[in-house]
């Protein structure tokens, strides 16, 4: 990044290659919308280009990158109606499972877990995504969020607890499906 900052813009490509997958995963999980996540990844790197001169020596590039990503993501949510913060089809993921009962159970739990994540407050979901999916250290998360590391620990604990509570309150996909089938007069299993 230092090279980019100092004018070697050819180094933007390697930066993109190194970070775009992680960035996309973060933004896709935060927005629940792959198309929006792609747009935001593009916007993040354009901002890197635009604000390259503000990058500080010794700073962690990933932290700087995710700060930009959070700001853009916040703008994205501001432009959308509050009720549509996440799309209805947040469960849109290939299920692609087959086989034994434990895999079926796992797939059901994944669907519930995604739904539960989508129902969390934005800041809680963000903490979980950074800590669990991006496996960032609490210190790095604290730097991205601009808070003390102790605050991250406490908020993360609350976020996981909230996720658990939402998760156990949600009915699983199978029981929902059976309700639909029984009300439509089709045989249930």
């Amino acid at each position: 990044m230092l090279a980019v900052r100092d004018g070697d813009l050819t180094q933007l490509g390697p930066l993109f290659e190194r970070h775009h997958v992680a960035l996309f995963d973060f933004l896709s999980r935060m927005t629940g919308d792959r198309a929006a996540a792609e747009d935001l990844v593009q916007d993040v790197f354009l901002r890197v280009l635009k604000y390259r001169s503000t990058y500080r020596d010794g700073g962690c590039f990933e932290t700087w990158l995710f700060r930009i990503a959070r700001n853009l993501r916040a703008d994205y949510f501001r432009r959308r109606p509050a009720a549509a913060a996440l799309p209805d089809d947040v469960l849109d993921r290939p299920d692609g499972f087959a086989g034994p009962a434990h895999q079926l159970e796992l797939a059901r739990n994944h669907a519930r877990l995604r739904k539960a994540l989508a129902l969390l407050r934005d800041d809680q979901r963000e903490l979980i995504v950074l800590a669990r999916f991006r496996t960032m250290k609490h210190e790095q998360i604290a730097e991205i969020l601009g808070v003390d590391v102790g605050v991250v620990r406490v908020r993360l604990h609350r976020a996981i607890r909230e996720l658990r509570d939402v998760f156990v309150r949600l009915p699983d996909e199978r029981s929902l499906w059976n309700v639909q089938k029984s009300t439509s007069g089709l045989p249930t299993t």
Binding site: F24, R93, L113, F133
Partner: peptide
Amino acid sequence: MLGTLPADVPDS
């Protein structure tokens, strides 16, 4: 369980 959720992979 969170750790078993597959990553969201972009069309690079």
